[in-house]
Design a binder for these strands. Structure first.
Lengths: 376, 376
DNA sequence: GTAAATATGAAAGACTCTTATATAAGCAGG
DNA sequence: CCTGCTTATATAAGAGTCTTTCATATTTAC
């Protein structure tokens, strides 16, 4: 329950948070502009900015004033984005990917290592910690680390269930990493992070209700509802489970195609789909039909969630987002046919960094909440 | 966008809202209790309560102090619930049902009229206005009216689409009623109001993620997500449309049963289901099988939304909630079998007043927002 | 009747905000 | 180079709200 009352100092915290939020927009602003934007008087804005300068959340831009107007030049301030760093890590079965960013969300470094899918859980955790250590740009500045991984991840950061990574089920990822890292560690399901990334700087920017279809070896959903990530009561939102809809059958056509077109190779569902997409692009009509059937199955599954949720946007993400219009177009066509209000269907353009990017966003959100809002 | 800054008076509004919220809990409280609960000092609480007394939002309880302790008896206050009334109306094809309540949510009156399903839209609107007029307990005190009706109702209170009531599609219900009634008029989809009612004083009290299955002549969903009503981007959330899942086929078995068991009668899907439920209760095994098949179809549809949303609770409402465990038990069984985290399945106990009750709650929420929070 | 307990009321002090006014710093033109 | 205009900064005065503190009022318990 949110605290709804307060003494005089609450006012300062409130106004301080308002000013900070404006600064976090990334613009370089003067005191006058800040005061107007935050709807406070100039002296108030000045006092708050002085506080923020002392706390190093803001910095003054010396020299080069952009556009010379007449009158005394105003002091100009900006958010001190390089005051802190966060790291977001995508922990998959075969690879670990870490993205380091500053508080402005500017990417400072990206590191990727491949790991064996059979790696035991404790070694995998150690590998994540090691990757984080390597990814640190400035040890002093690291403020939070967020991890995205497959499976059902509960609110405390435990992997309740994972089929994709053997031995991952039951692992307390949060505790394991918190013991190895000296900063707050957040853990979240990968699909939810992917939709967070799309909402932050992807195709879902500005949308409030988004269904994210995650494709790869498995199929899952990430739901953004009312501008907020939906986790579900057991943190299992987005899991498809065994439902008898299109999803379960989705891969059949592309697997059949891959097996008949290239019998020698043994392929995972995802590899089969990628293979079929590649051939379809190259002009193979049978491959194109298989991909279209695949898209149709996905769309059939999507309908069951699109109709009741009424989202504005469906994002096709995961490894098959590269298929682009080959998947998007048939899905859009099917949704147009059978839903009351067809949402727009688009492919993710964030590539395979989307989960790590979403983890960065999660870490930044965490800092926003803990640093900037109540106490400060 | 919420206003995030403010001057000194904001503090008073904030604390005032906090005090009022505590009073709205319905308890009779002393100043000391209020001060502690709202986390403000006693003099502050006293000043605010004086304001509220002057504005007639609070009233002092004279005399009968409940439990005599020693010391000077404290003045005791409560929310002045009878200061205002709201009316919630369920507008269906065959009936109009109005529930009048005070600001405490205490029901003051219930009126019901039957109408012809062929009633033209403007006459239906006039009938609603007339029913509201009749339902008024104290003209001075009426503060808001909320309407629930079938179909897709957009944010401005227009009926964008309705199949259940002929001629209802395209009607601007909000404008039509606002012209006839002297108070704010709110319009919302009936299924969403039903879930609001369950969350207020029904089986969903205290739950944050709820799927409400509305049964009647048509099937739809109401979604409570994160403790808030989900409307969807076109206000069409909960509409099932033409999706090829269990829903569409749901009624087949009970219709077949009704036609074979009692060929003379012509029954709507809903009547068929009610007929089968009645026979099943009376011990007819074939009817029981038909009802079970019906429940199974519903469950199949539910799975497609329960898995991705991961709700805590599924409420079976609408006219078939009376079937109780006859529907609930097979649905629960199926969900237990095929979902990762089966939610609890329960039947609504609000009966056919749930939509009107939800409309009352909507009106009360509206008043809370407009009267009690920002300006006041 | 007195002591203890609790509630009320008033005063003083602190914090933050706003408005108003004076001062500083740059540019334009004589 | 100085004056005037314009905009920004700095300072002071005033108002609103909150808290703490202390004195007073009212009831019960013994």
């Amino acid at each position: 329950m949110r605290q709804e009352s307060g003494d005089a100092s609450l006012l300062r915290r409130l106004n301080s948070a308002a000013i900070l939020r404006i600064l976090r927009g990334g613009e370089v602003v003067t005191l006058t502009e800040l005061a107007r934007a935050a709807r406070v008087s100039r002296p108030t804005a000045e006092g708050i900015v002085e506080d923020l300068l002392a706390k190093r959340w803001a910095e003054e831009c010396e020299g080069e004033s952009a556009d010379r107007q007449r009158g005394r030049p105003a002091r100009r301030f900006r958010f001190h984005g390089s005051a802190g760093h966060v790291i977001g890590v995508d922990v998959g079965g075969y690879k670990l990917l870490a993205v380091t960013a500053d508080l402005n969300g500017r990417i400072l470094a990206t590191r990727r290592v491949t790991v064996s899918p059979d790696l035991p859980a404790d070694e995998r955790i150690a590998a994540v910690a090691a990757l984080v250590e390597e990814s640190v740009v400035d040890k002093e500045k690291l403020a939070a680390v967020a991890i995205g991984t497959t499976g059902v991840v509960d609110g405390a950061g435990r992997v309740v269930k994972s089929v994709a990574i053997p031995g991952w089920t039951g692992v307390d990822l949060q505790a394991g990493l918190a013991a190895l890292l000296p900063v707050p560690v957040l853990v979240e399901n990968d699909m939810r992070l992917a939709v967070l990334a799309e909402h932050w700087r992807g195709v879902a920017e500005g949308y409030r209700d988004v269904v994210y279809l995650f494709t790869g070896n498995r199929i899952g959903l990430g739901l953004l509802i009312g501008g907020r990530l939906h986790r579900g009561s057991h943190a299992a939102s987005g899991e498809i489970g065994d439902q008898p809809s299109g999803y379960r059958l989705a891969f059949r056509n592309v697997i059949d195609y891959a097996m008949s077109a290239d019998p020698g190779e043994l392929r995972s569902p995802r590899q089969s789909a990628e293979f079929a997409v590649g051939r379809a692009r190259a002009g193979d009509e049978e491959a194109a039909r298989a991909v279209e059937a695949f898209a149709f199955r996905l769309a059939e599954g999507l309908v069951t969630i699109v109709n009741p949720l009424d989202p504005e946007l469906v994002v096709v993400g995961g490894s098959l987002s590269q298929a682009g219009s080959l998947l998007v177009e048939p899905i859009q066509r099917h949704l147009n046919r059978v839903t009351l209000y067809p949402p727009e269907v688009v492919a993710s353009r964030l590539g395979n960094e989307s989960v790590a990017l979403g983890a960065v966003r999660l870490a930044l959100d965490h800092l926003d909440r803990t640093l900037f809002t109540p106490a400060s």
